[in-house]
Design a protein around this nucleic acid. Structure first.
Lengths: 193, 193, 193, 193
DNA sequence: AATGAATGAGCATTCATTCAT
DNA sequence: AATGAATGAATGCTCATTCAT
């Protein structure tokens, strides 16, 4: 399996750094290769093309969010707590990796519509877990059982996304993690029963 | 004033169509000119360069949102009503111009970080008006006076944005305007006193 | 006759200034028109095309040199004196019109080979007069009767040209006219009997 | 070192031919690449941009003149002989490479003022060596010790340049090398003691 | 497995000239 | 005679990908 080879992750990490430091359009394959300490051609032994690198970046990194969220769902007591811990986790991971935050919130969005559609399908798995939490809460009576799940999900994710993007655009000037409880509170107000 | 000349708006509209139909990176100046029914060179009598066209597209179209919102703020009775009508207006304008919706929600985001920073400064004016509504509501007691305005704003705008983007990505399959009341309800729940 | 109309000379002079101030490649027709205080299109009532302006600039200005030289030939006593006064005149005219000097020595040389061939044919009339002086001197015994006239002419003109070009490239830093006697002396040494 | 790689010289030579055959403004990068038998992009592995090719053409080719002249200075017996051999060499090199002669005497002069300034700084080295010969001759008493070196240099170089340019403009119709002794004789007359 | 030199398609912009007014 | 808005052809350069070594 290619993704178990050491150079695979090496290239992924190099791509995140190259994109964060140079911007999406200035992160040429040659720069990623240089950052990874390998030759340009070697990239193509591990990735089909440049787009494949970028999708893989998203898959690999999103994987962390998904694994964490599965853990949270498994261990959480209530839906409210799960949602709360999901937001906290999302903020924490990105606050602790500003390169990654820049890449996911700003740079990767400059990619072609086609690439973003693929990224979206990766994202869907994460949103499905979010839907699980919401539905569970509606069933248990913690959340408003009459609300439209899709819209609730869009509110939760849209708010998280906008909050982090603003933080990145403001050049990380304030403590992102500290805002998590307030964000959580507003969102819970919106959907609670 | 150049923006009062008929060809100015003609080019803006041609750009929206060309970008919506071909995608951001495939909307060459020659395509925009052809769509506008003029020669390539004529573009440059009205715009400094291609980026200038794109910024102007955003300014012109965002201008509609801002003017509408100012009207809403002037005429609305309560903050609740103003927020409700803002969301309704935002959804209605884009639901009625799918080309524009595609351009603002998907295509223009692929532009360079520099262009997006300029777009953001145009956006700021809109967000300032949103802040006005929120603060007024907090003062009047309609909205929770203890909430963090910035986070509330990010929730409102993030939710609107995510909702419309999802709609566009789903290829306008459902009635966007019909979802406005539900979106409004969830958001109001979140911020009401 | 078009060249008797006031706008004809007005455009010629505007062209010299526009070229001197902006450089050959940055002296667009629109700049020349603006400098002349007329509309772009008006240029084409007096000149066939841009090349025609530039040739005319050269013709008109070279005309001064030719008239002066004819006068010098008519009034001069000896060939030596005539050559001396020719060099003096050439230096004086250009030292007194730095715009013109820049245009003839630097800017006009960037024109296409084709244009420079035409310029050369204008120049020929001037060089013919120079040949007259040289041949007369050879016949009279002032100059070496065995020398090759063409080479002597190339030496005289090449030296004049190089001297002025160097002066222009050195940004007129020294007194060009003051060098005329030394230049004349060297050249006369070379060709005298 | 890039200039030791075979493709470097290959491109330089292709540029000389492409410019000589098509003219400066019609010598597009694609034509130079085609002439060199390589892809357009390959040019940019060896040169920063098109201007860099042209400067390099001049440097490389002027280098031959400079090296030859250094050799001549080293081996020549008298200043008179050195000057004589310098002129002979200058004529011979260009008479034997008409492409190069066309490029240096006609085409390269159409380049932008900026490029010509760079070309001039290359030329300066050659002129410095000429100055060396002149000064040496003035010290040894072969040349007039009272003459102005700058003007003498301008006469020598201006004459050489004008002679060759005229020959090129006359489409190489006569034997350039055969005129060298006459040119030399006239110049020596001008500067000898 | 790894290299890195070579490839070649693709596009924003300028400006001399025209011509309807 | 004069205007000036409109035209449209023409080109240097980048960079993802390949493939001989």
């Amino acid at each position: 399996m290619k993704r178990d080879k050491p150079k695979y992750k090496q290239i992924i990490d190099a791509a995140v750094i190259a994109i964060a430091e140079n911007g999406y359009h200035q992160a040429q394959v040659s720069k990623i290769a240089k950052q990874a300490g390998i030759a340009d051609g070697t990239i193509y032994l591990y990735f089909k093309n440049k787009e494949d690198i970028l999708i893989s970046v998203f898959e690999e990194k999103m994987g962390v969010f998904i694994e964490n969220l599965q853990e949270i769902i498994k261990n959480g007591e209530s839906s409210t707590e799960k949602l709360s811990r999901m937001i906290e986790n999302h903020f924490t991971v990105l606050a602790n990796d500003r390169h990654l935050a820049t890449v996911t919130q700003l740079e990767l969005r400059q990619s072609s519509k086609q690439l973003r559609l693929k990224i979206n399908s990766v994202l869907k798995e994460y949103l499905k877990l979010l839907d699980e939490i919401l539905i569970e809460g509606m069933v248990s009576g913690e959340f408003n059982p009459n609300m439209d799940v899709r819209i609730a999900r869009q509110m939760v994710f849209g708010t998280i996304d906008e909050t982090i993007t603003t933080w990145v655009m403001n050049e990380y000037r304030y403590d992102l993690i500290a805002t998590a409880p307030k964000v959580t509170q507003l969102l819970l107000n919106g959907i609670k029963n």
